[in-house]
């Protein structure tokens, strides 16, 4: 039998989907992982080593001082978003791998999505609306470094 007598064994395959989220999720895990190494170790370095007092110096005033700078606001926002999405996508993978009951899997995935959204929204809100000395508050409840109102 020569090649001339053999027809193509199958008709051409029709692609089923336009976007494949698994591919992008896989890429995201690698990209965010590399970025998070830099962000997290930078975070630990500035908080614990670069600062003289070490872990004992991390208090309300220290956080207030950091978030007064837009640089650290963006740094922490990036860290929050990347880490939470990275973590919840990892959890999603584990749920997909190990939960064989489809109803239970659905419940867990929805819970995971909801909790991640709540945490990301709340975290972002805190970073950008944080005001250590809100006006109208009682002076006795404010930290000592706030100017007298």
């Amino acid at each position: 039998m020569t090649t001339e007598t053999v027809e193509a064994p199958r008709s051409a395959r029709v692609s089923r989907r336009s976007t494949n989220w698994e591919k992008w999720a896989w890429l995201y895990m690698r990209g965010s992982g590399v970025l998070l190494i830099v962000l997290i170790f930078g975070h630990l370095f500035t908080n614990l080593i670069a600062d003289e007092g070490g872990v004992k110096a991390v208090d309300f005033a220290f956080v207030a001082g950091k978030w007064a700078s837009p640089f650290w606001q963006i740094w922490d926002t990036l860290m929050l978003w990347l880490a939470l999405i990275h973590g919840s996508n990892g959890m999603r993978t584990i749920v997909n791998d190990y939960v064989s009951n489809s109803t239970l899997r659905r419940i867990m995935l929805v819970a995971l999505l909801a909790s991640s959204i709540v945490l990301i929204v709340l975290g972002t809100l805190v970073i950008y609306t944080f005001d250590p000395c809100p006006s109208g508050a009682l002076q006795s409840q404010l930290p000592s470094f706030c100017p007298a109102q």
């Binding site: 051409a12 395959r13 692609s15 494949n20 698994e22 591919k23 999720a25 896989w26």
Partner: peptide
């Protein structure tokens, strides 16, 4: 390309 498309699936290489 056809085979890469087949394996670029929810149940493909990314698992």
């Amino acid at each position: 390309e056809v085979r890469l498309d087949i394996l670029n699936d929810k149940e493909g290489v990314w698992r």
